[in-house]
């Protein structure tokens, strides 16, 4: 069984009991596109599939790390890279223990390059240790009402007890882009991180929609073996905001483009004044 099928099977096993198949069919124009997805237009869920399932969020986790970092550290605050951060696995900037960088540069590296060394350096700087930072992450998740989210590490590695739902990740993205510092960073196509002794790291945004999709504003990519390809993408045109969350996506970029363009096209074609009839809230 390939990775995508595994993810879908796992997702199906976690479908909430109250999600009727009819409701899923009515709001799922992209069956099989991802283990879970959600498309929101101006805060209203337009299409979704399995969006309450608890799945691996991979580096989308770093959105929470970024929130806690900007709430604790000023842009110019100095962060010293520890041994543990310097040894972080996966995507990394190439930081070495003892390097010192402004917090904002590490934040950009964590969000755009998805650099785990930068991410961990921030977490340790904010809370002293990753364990304490993770406790803060979970407290903030609870405060944000993310009922299907739990973090076991700061940067998104697969592991027991590390999960989130597409629905929760949409809320997390809202909280993240509400911070102007984060919003400004994730909208860049590339950035640099400079150590205080003059070493420069250049990196591109792993979210390739920025600069390619009209109105793209960021915000975060993710990948792990268990999570598959993940994405939270935000775009705005003419005052309309479209947010897409994909977890375990089969064809992440093309599907995200199709979803974003569909959402804008549908909004454009919709009559100007439509008042939804009273009824149960959309799932």
């Amino acid at each position: 069984m390939n990775r995508g099928a595994l993810a879908i099977a796992a997702a199906l096993a976690l479908v909430p009991a109250d999600a009727s198949s009819a409701a899923v069919a009515a709001t799922d124009p992209w069956p099989g596109a991802a283990a879970a997805y959600l498309v929101r237009v101006d805060g209203e869920v337009r299409w979704s599939s399995n969006d309450a399932a608890r799945l691996k969020p991979a580096s989308l986790t770093k959105l929470m790390t970024a929130i806690l970092a900007v709430e604790t550290l000023a842009p110019g605050d100095e962060v010293k890279v520890g041994k543990r951060a310097a040894a972080a696995d996966g995507a990394r900037l190439g930081l070495r223990a003892g390097m010192r960088l402004p917090a904002e540069h590490l934040l950009a590296a964590a969000l755009l390059r998805s650099a785990n060394d930068a991410c961990l350096a921030l977490a340790e700087r904010v809370s002293g240790s990753e364990a304490r930072f993770v406790a803060t992450m979970n407290a903030r998740a609870a405060a944000l009402g993310l009922a299907d989210t739990h973090f076991a590490n700061a940067c998104g590695f697969d592991g027991p007890g590390h999960y989130a739902s597409a629905r929760d990740l949409a809320k997390l993205a809202d909280a993240a882009v509400a911070h102007p510092r984060i919003a400004a960073i994730v909208a860049r196509e590339s950035s640099v991180a400079k150590t205080l002794d003059g070493r420069t790291f250049r990196f591109d945004n792993t979210n390739v929609l920025v600069g390619r999709v009209d109105g793209a504003l960021g915000i975060k990519t993710g990948w792990t073996r268990m999570a598959g390809r993940c994405l939270v993408a935000l775009a705005e045109r003419g005052g309309t905001r479209v947010l897409v969350v994909l977890l375990g996506a089969q064809d992440r970029w093309w599907d995200a483009v199709a979803m974003i363009e569909s959402a804008f096209e549908e909004t454009r074609a919709r009559p100007a004044t439509v008042t939804p009839p009273p009824g149960p809230a959309r799932r």
Binding site: D255, E265, E266
Partner: peptide
């Protein structure tokens, strides 16, 4: 090519008919 390919993605994978 991206603007054209974005439109192509919408036309072939999108959820709503093209209007206008």
């Amino acid at each position: 090519l991206i603007p054209m390919c974005n439109r192509y993605a919408f036309l072939t994978k999108g959820s709503v008919p093209a209007g206008g």
